[in-house]
Structure formats: structure tokens, C-alpha cells
Design a protein around this nucleic acid. Sequence first.
DNA 1: TTGACATGTCACCGGCCGGTGACTATATTG
DNA 2: CAATATAGTCACCGGCCGGTGACATGTCAA
Lengths: 206, 206
Amino acid sequence: MERDKDKTKKKIIEALAQLLAKSGFSNIGINAIAREAGVDKVLIYRYFGGLSGLFAAFAEEENLFPKPDMIKKTGEVKLSSDLAEISKNFIRHYCNMLRKRPVTREILRWELIERNELTDSLAETREKQGLQVIALFDNYTEIDFPVVASVITAGITYLSLRAKTANVYSGIDITSDKGWERIEQGLVSLIDKMFPKNHLQKEADS
Amino acid sequence: MERDKDKTKKKIIEALAQLLAKSGFSNIGINAIAREAGVDKVLIYRYFGGLSGLFAAFAEEENLFPKPDMIKKTGEVKLSSDLAEISKNFIRHYCNMLRKRPVTREILRWELIERNELTDSLAETREKQGLQVIALFDNYTEIDFPVVASVITAGITYLSLRAKTANVYSGIDITSDKGWERIEQGLVSLIDKMFPKNHLQKEADS
DNA sequence: TTGACATGTCACCGGCCGGTGACTATATTG
DNA sequence: CAATATAGTCACCGGCCGGTGACATGTCAA
């Protein structure tokens, strides 16, 4: 008997992360978490008030959806470069972030099935950051930028989730680093098409 | 007692569709399906050999992922218009198809979680059709078209699934017809950017 | 030291699950 | 009519689930 409440709480929270990374949300339950943590399930009720409370604690604890570097701590956006560069950086950051965060992916997966304290919390931060970035493009009206940005990030999200149950999507390898470099690169050139530097230059390379 | 094997089989298959549309795949199980069909569960084992067999039968029965009109029955592709027009038509078809097919959406959702006879069957037809369309753009090398097409269709898929648990994605309304018209329109103008008719015309409207 | 409290253990409940064996009722065929 | 195959019913099993009450054990303060 360890008799250390804080340590036990931490063990439980880490067990949740472990379970998510290992087998996704489908097997998440009081029994499974307690088993994984090597702790009696009644403690989950006592310390967190059940699954919901544990989810809330987990959402606060972990850095599930880090802000891109371009968004400073103050929430201000670094405007050092043009819109195309901002877009490219965001895409690169988003791809890498998702690729190296299995737990975040599992929660995004979960989010498509049901809502709970965890998914809601993640969805909220994501929505806020998305709006923040999109706001930069307010005066760019040649295309419906919010729609395009939404579809592209949604597409990246989908492909990163799909990689768990498939290797290929429309011929694109979605499991290897190489495949993801191709995806990033392809999107980057799309961005260049969307934001032509100027018409003269465009005329020149034809 | 009805004593009509074929009718009972149909009842079971339809119960599966009903359940999927009603409450998604999470509640799918022998007991639930039998209950929904008003039939004893042992018949599912006898007639289909269990869930897997039922899934296979269901996949054959239903038209879960209809081909777009542009792909004729022979598999040939109608080349009546230019690449931009083909892309736009495909996007429109894909959005509408997903929006009006709750069962297909549920299976796509399922596909992100686990694999079974149903999800594999749907994934296969989808992959084939995707490659067929993308093949049309083989000689268009200005951008990595397969990547862009994959990300866009993946994005549409994600947003259509996400609409079950959220109303908004980066400020875009993803639940109403109006919101989806905006998404279609936004992508259509993106396509126009990707396939400029010619440089003279492009120069003219600036 | 002793009592009170916090921490952790254990056993049990009802409910749903997938799966199966034994049964009944109907239809068919000789 | 009788024998047999087929369609459908029913009861039961073990296992896992979420949830709870009763208990044991350690800690700390009066």
C-alpha cells in the first residue's frame, strides 16, 4: 500500500493516456483504467468523481494540442511573413503535430463518435486556434479562405486518423514519413497556386 | 411464426441498416440486431454464420457508395469537359452523396476505428473509384494532383462525419444545407484557381 | 496512547454481452 | 399418414461491465 493520493491520481491519469495510445477509446472504462493503473477502481470514483471528472483532469494535465510557434503565448500572431508563408507553416506544424501525437489522434477519433469532457475540451482549443489563424486572412477575398483552410485541415486530420486502419488513400501512402512529406509538399505547392506572388512572375514561368 | 427464411434474412439486414442510421456502429451486436429485427439471435448465426457473414451480405445488398454519373457503368470515364469541370462535378457529387447517406457515413466512421467485412468492402470500392478519377489527371503535373484530391475528399469526409458531434468547424457551419453549399462553392473556386483557363483570361480579370 | 480520518482492498450486485444446446412448430415428401 | 427436414423459440452459460457497501490499514493530531 503506497498511501500517496497524488501519486495514485497521477498513476490513474497516466493509465488513461497509456490505454488511449495502446488501444484507442473503445476499451476505455472504469475497470480497464483501474486495471492498467494497478489501482482499485473505487479510487477513480473517490478522487475524480467517475470517468467524467477523470477526463476533465486529464484534459487539463496533458498538452494535447500545442499551439503552433506562430501563435505566441499572448495569443498574438507573428506577422513576419506573407500569407502564403503563414499557411505553409501552419500546414507543416499541423501535420507534424498530429503525426507525433497518438493520444491526440485518439481523442480526435473519439470526437467523431461521441462527446465528453475530453473531446469537448480539445475541440474548444482547436476551434479557437483555427479562428485565430483564419482571422489573418480576413481581407483576402479572392477565394473563401475559411472554407479552404477548413477542408485542408480536416483532410489532414482525416488522413492521419485513417492511417490506423489503412495504408493507402487514393494511392497516397499515409503511413510512412515519406508519404507525409509528399502530402506536405503537395499542399505547399497548392498554397503557392492560391497565393501567386504577382502576375508578372506568374507570366514569366509559363 | 412467419416461416419464411428469405424474408427473415431481409429483416435482419434491414435491422442492421436501421441500427447504423439510428445509433451508429457502437451499439451494433448480435443481440441488438436481433432485437431490432424482432428475431431470435440464433438465426443470425444460422443464416449468416455470425456478424461477419451478415456484414458481407449487407455490403453486397446495399448501394452504399454509388459511382458518380461521370463514371459510366462500363468503368469508362466521360471526358466531355475539361479537368476543372470534372473536378467540380466530382466534388459536388461527393458532398451530396455523403450528405444524404447516413448509413454510408456511419460505415466511414466505423472504418476509422476498426476493420471488418463491411468497412473493407466499402473502402475497396472507394479506393478503386478514387484512382479511376485521379488517373484522368496523370499528365497534369503542375501540382501533385493525387495529394490535393486526397486531402480535399478526405476533408469533405471528415467534415461530414464531424457534423454528428459538432455544428461548426473553424467557423464553418457543417450541419446545414446552407453551410454545405458554401463549402462546395468555396472548393469550386479553389479548383478554378488550380486550373486557370489561360493566362490571358487570368490577366484580364485582374 | 488513543481516537479520528484518509487511503486503499475486497466482495458483491444487476445488467448486458456473445454464444450454444435443446426444444417446438410447421412444411414437405414419400 | 408418417417421417424428416426446416424455421423459429427458449433457457442457460460464462464473462465483462459500471457501481457500491463493508472492511482493513496506515497517518496524524489531541
